[in-house]
């Protein structure tokens, strides 16, 4: 792994110390953990009483109520769970666009979210698209221990999903970090990602070169993933069309997110630190 990426992971972890992942109520489920779940569980925090149902644990029958009322009543305690973050990183080559801070920003953002999740007592899984979705080695440890973050895949996340879908934990918080620059219908992959998730956040991470059209002049643009080339003369009208295409793409993703109940925001890689407010605004992060 490149030293710059590792350094970005450290920086992101340091930055994420100031934030905590904002866990939606619906996401308060998971394996037994230290965080109160939304269901009754085996913690010591009393939650409610209800009538005994066959199969209930006999240990939670309140025998005092049975003595007084001759009715079997079980005590319900708040469940203590560990929320989970599934961080899905786009591992395609476009995320490591030359002469941009995109790759570093992905690593930094991933580390930040992981740190924020840790602050929120969340477990985490970091998925990287490639030939299928693979978890990063040591992704359960602190970001500095992650390994094999490599943005060299020729496949889009959608294609990776077809090959080997990630094994998300149910009711986890899922965050997709990608530039979303691939053709196809966004709704399809979003539905898949949203399925079984407590919440889905889509963070579109763009380099400034992606967001703003280049300077005027003749350009031979090369697709970082396919290697395809095209020659274009950039003028004001072309720049305008580029901006319209980008806006149209973002709009289609935004519409798809709205349909799936996902939240979407766009961050410029070079302006990552000042863009964190966007993550707060979609209630992904909250100051720790």
């Amino acid at each position: 792994m490149e030293p710059a990426i590792r350094q970005a992971l450290r920086d992101g972890e340091q930055l994420g110390a100031r934030y905590a992942l904002q866990i939606p109520q619906v996401a308060a489920s998971g394996i037994i953990g230290s965080r109160a779940g939304r269901r009754a569980g085996s913690s010591i925090d009393f939650q409610d009483y209800r009538e005994y149902q066959p199969g209930d644990d006999l240990r939670f029958i309140d025998w005092g109520i049975y003595a007084r009322t001759d009715r079997l009543t079980v005590k319900l305690f708040r469940e203590e769970v560990t929320p989970h973050l599934d961080l899905i990183l786009d591992g395609s080559r476009s995320m490591n666009l030359a002469d941009t801070a995109k790759a570093n920003a992905v690593a930094q953002l991933a580390a930040l979210l992981a740190a924020a999740a840790a602050n929120a007592q969340c477990s985490q899984a970091i998925w990287l698209s490639g030939e299928g979705f693979q978890r990063l080695p040591n992704d359960t440890l602190s970001p500095a221990a992650w390994d094999k973050i490599d943005f060299s895949s020729l496949r889009t996340p959608e294609q990776s999903y077809e090959i080997l879908p990630p094994k998300f934990r149910r009711l986890g918080v899922r965050v997709l970090v990608s530039d979303l620059l691939w053709p196809g219908e966004p709704l399809q992959i979003l539905r898949r990602l949203r399925e079984g998730a407590a919440a889905l956040f889509v963070v579109q991470l763009l380099a400034r070169d992606d967001a703003t059209p280049p300077e005027h002049g003749n350009l031979r643009v090369v697709d970082s993933e396919t290697g395809a080339e095209t020659e274009i003369y950039i003028d004001s009208s072309i720049a305008k069309q580029y901006a319209e295409n980008l806006a149209s793409l973002q709009q289609s993703w935004s519409d798809a997110c709205r349909q799936c109940g996902a939240q979407m925001t766009t961050i410029i890689a070079e302006d990552l630190e000042i863009s964190l407010k966007e993550l707060e605004s979609i209630q992904l992060l909250t100051p720790a």
Partner: peptide, 15 residues
């Protein structure tokens, strides 16, 4: 023509 790598030609479809 200056060579420039872009994330995707998706946004350059008009060309």
């Amino acid at each position: 023509f200056r060579r420039k790598q872009v994330s995707s030609l998706l946004l350059w479809r008009f060309q």
